[in-house]
Amino acid sequence: MSLQFLLDGLISGAMIGLGAIGVTLTYSILRFSNFAHGDLMAWGAYAALVAVGVVGGLAGPIAPLSFGLPLILATLFAMGFTAGLALLLDWLLFARLRARGQAIIVVMASFGASMALRNLLEFLFSSSPAYYSRALQIAQPVGFGIRITPDQGALLVMTVALVTGMHLFLTRSQRGREMRAYSQNPALARVTGIDVSRVVRTTWIIGAALAAAAGVMVGTLVQIRPLMGLDLLLPMFAAAILGGIGSVPGAVLAGLIIGLSEAAAVMFIGAEWRAGVAFVILMAVLLVRPTGLFGVTER
């Protein structure tokens, strides 16, 4: 038996986990399930594709990776661009509906936004897949029959850095503490002097920037397609719920669990069962432990 599926699961789990951070923060702070989150991921991937087209001539790839400085710069641009897109969506749509106070309307609106964003991508870029680089990568053996490409290694390191940074931000910085305080008790946050609109802005910026980073990661390791975000939506929600709504470490750990379970299903049951895994996990968590791994009961 090849243990390669463990690495494959780890990689897709890292992408799911990065995306799930945004889902869990939006859910716990803005109090709605943002079904357009996957499409923010796709928009991030395409924003980086456009940016790579512009700055691609600056420098070549950094051996042994398939990419170099241009994609790194393009990723930073994509994170900023996607954050701006999320703030625009909030201003245009979500903030107005939130003010009316019914969460379900906001959720439905996010469905609509999801479709609009996705179709706009297909209109602009067509539905055929695109790539940052056509370069082939040679997977290096690392023992136990597992092989890893340099790109996979680099992106795993990036994920660890982003997640660690995110955790430190939420636990050590004033802004991060304000976000946690607001998610635990919005009314008390206001009388404590916390500026709610700033918390909302920060939440969108962080969620969208991490979604863009995850999008670039999928684009580098798999391919860039308008549907890439939609495909990851169910696993991301499953991870956010399995991890416990509001918990960043929980979302990442659950993302890894789901990625590994999917890879194991492909390995031991059959590739056609892959998409069902997240669904089964989601159902099981909701039935057995709705608060997830690190969640707390809602008051």
């Binding site: 946690r180 305080a181 008790n185």
Partner: peptide, 12 residues
């Protein structure tokens, strides 16, 4: 202002 109930951030 100190509210009557839920006047702390419980998980912090």
């Amino acid at each position: 202002f100190v509210p009557q109930t839920e006047n702390v951030f419980p998980l912090m």
